Simulated scan of single mutants.
Amino acid sequence: MQIDGHHTLTYVVARYAGIDHYTAEKVAYSAQYVDEATNDSQIHFENGAMYDRIVSAHKMLDYRNTQELANNLVWIPFHFLPGNAGFPSSETPEGSFINRLICMPDSQVARDMLKMVAQHWERPYAAQMMGVAMHVYADTFAHQGFAGVIHDVNQVDELESTSTSLLQNIKDNLFSYAISESSPLGHGAALSFPDRPYTSWKYQNGLGKKVERDNTKIFLDAADAMCKAMQCWKSRDTSIDIDNQPGLTKDQLALIKHALLTINDDSGDARHKEWLKWLQEDKFELGAVDLSFDIEGQDSWKFKARGEATKIDGVFKYPYSEAFLTSDWKYFHDALKTYRLEIIRDVLPSYGICVA
Score class of each variant (00 low, 15 high):
311 K>W: 03
317 K>C: 04
214 D>G: 02
30 S>W: 14
216 T>E: 02
145 G>F: 06
4 D>F: 04
259 A>F: 06
179 I>L: 15
166 L>N: 01
18 G>M: 09
124 P>H: 00
151 H>I: 00
79 H>E: 09
152 D>S: 14
177 Y>V: 00
142 A>M: 15
310 T>K: 07
70 A>F: 00
331 Y>A: 14
142 A>Y: 05
279 L>R: 04
187 H>C: 11
22 Y>T: 08
69 L>V: 06
132 V>M: 13
81 L>T: 01
295 I>N: 11
54 I>H: 02
169 N>V: 12
181 E>P: 15
190 A>H: 01
256 I>W: 13
60 M>G: 14
247 G>V: 14
16 Y>I: 10
311 K>T: 07
15 R>G: 01
332 F>K: 02
75 W>H: 02
42 Q>E: 07
347 V>Q: 02
27 V>E: 03
297 G>T: 07
75 W>D: 04
298 Q>E: 10
247 G>L: 11
266 D>L: 08
280 Q>F: 14
75 W>Y: 08
61 L>S: 11
314 G>N: 13
170 I>S: 11
288 A>D: 09
220 L>A: 13
230 M>E: 00
136 V>T: 03
2 Q>E: 15
78 F>M: 03
140 T>S: 13
74 V>W: 02
17 A>I: 08
285 E>P: 10
50 M>L: 03
285 E>L: 00
347 V>L: 12
9 L>Y: 11
55 V>G: 00
263 I>W: 10
185 L>S: 00
153 V>R: 13
286 L>F: 07
160 E>P: 02
38 T>V: 00
160 E>C: 00
33 Y>K: 01
210 K>L: 06
212 E>N: 01
85 A>G: 09
325 L>N: 05
258 H>S: 15
108 Q>V: 15
71 N>V: 04
26 K>V: 09
95 G>L: 08
233 W>V: 06
158 E>R: 14
146 F>I: 11
83 G>P: 04
98 I>S: 12
249 T>I: 08
56 S>V: 05
286 L>R: 02
293 F>E: 03
188 G>A: 10
245 Q>C: 14
76 I>E: 05
84 N>H: 13
21 H>N: 07
178 A>P: 05
142 A>H: 03
105 P>I: 15
148 G>F: 09
100 R>E: 05
153 V>H: 11
4 D>S: 10
163 S>A: 09
67 Q>R: 11
89 S>V: 06
302 K>P: 10
118 A>N: 12
339 Y>K: 08
190 A>S: 12
171 K>V: 14
227 C>H: 07
185 L>G: 04
338 T>G: 08
176 S>R: 06
156 V>G: 06
84 N>A: 04
38 T>I: 01
175 F>V: 14
48 G>K: 14
196 R>C: 01
311 K>F: 03
290 D>S: 13
205 N>L: 08
339 Y>F: 09
227 C>T: 09
202 K>H: 04
268 G>M: 01
28 A>W: 10
320 Y>D: 06
167 L>E: 12
122 E>T: 15
280 Q>Y: 11
319 P>Y: 11
211 V>W: 02
32 Q>D: 14
277 K>S: 11
345 R>L: 13
25 E>K: 03
151 H>N: 12
92 T>L: 12
34 V>E: 02
60 M>D: 15
106 D>E: 13
233 W>Y: 15
163 S>V: 03
109 V>S: 09
14 A>L: 04
44 H>M: 09
82 P>H: 04
169 N>R: 09
111 R>I: 07
141 F>H: 08
163 S>R: 10
